[in-house]
Amino acid sequence: MLSRSKVVLAFDAGSVQAARVELGLRSRRFAAFARKALEPDALRPLPLQPNVARPDEVRQAARAVVIELQGVGKPGVVVLPDGVARMVLLDVPSGTDPGDYARFRIGPQLPYPATDAVVDASPVGGGRYIGAAVRRDVAAEYEALAEAAGLVCERVELSPLAGLAALAAERRREEAQTSMDVVLGEAAFSMALFGGSAALAFRNRRRDPGPHDGERIGEEVERTALLGAAGSAPRVRLVGPGARRVAEGLRASGLDARTGWGDVPSMAAADAEELAWLGAGLA
């Protein structure tokens, strides 16, 4: 009786996906999923230029998944794809608002006025935050798509930040000395290296669709792992499209690589591990 539901609507380069999340007092579960593929270049997750190249197509896809989940008029969370934000690992001084500090640090680096950016920060342990700036026009494009689909937009999240936040519980459970979380998007991917519970490094790269995409991601993961303690190979966890394939390549290279979110309520782990945006419903 005290449960309610919300819709998580996620956009990425190749698809629009959504899930209806049932929220109880002490639990949450994924009740339904929907996915609509997009034609190539209908949506391009970019930080500076307009993202929606073919608005009608993307709008129809968003509308279709929301209707399929009976989510019209329901509160929803819009998940922005990796590739639209500039992200930086920050040491936030104590007593400082992380969002304000992120705006202070990232603002001058942006190729557009800082006032045109929506900035927020997500904690990643050890007093560190990942600050992210999304161009206001870009965020507004996705908000407009969600509203056109009939969703009551409550919040706009960024897929890699939501993913890393959701993986934090799994990280604490595994208690690895050095670990790396990799959140793969369809257009870009993010890697966070942790020493214990504190973030040591964060990197964000664009993907290069093609036959060598997996190898290139593997190389980036290995390069990021070098930023940790010498002689200590991290345990790698990957989520998002292609996670299984990249993990296999990493394991072939001798790394301890695994996939998935851990225990996802009412969902097969094999399905969940390929959905990077799922973090927005788990966190």
Partner: peptide
């Protein structure tokens, strides 16, 4: 929990 909304949204008012 981050929020990159461009304008103030109707927050989750359940609580």
């Amino acid at each position: 929990m981050t929020d990159f909304s461009t304008r103030p949204r109707r927050k989750d008012r359940t609580t």
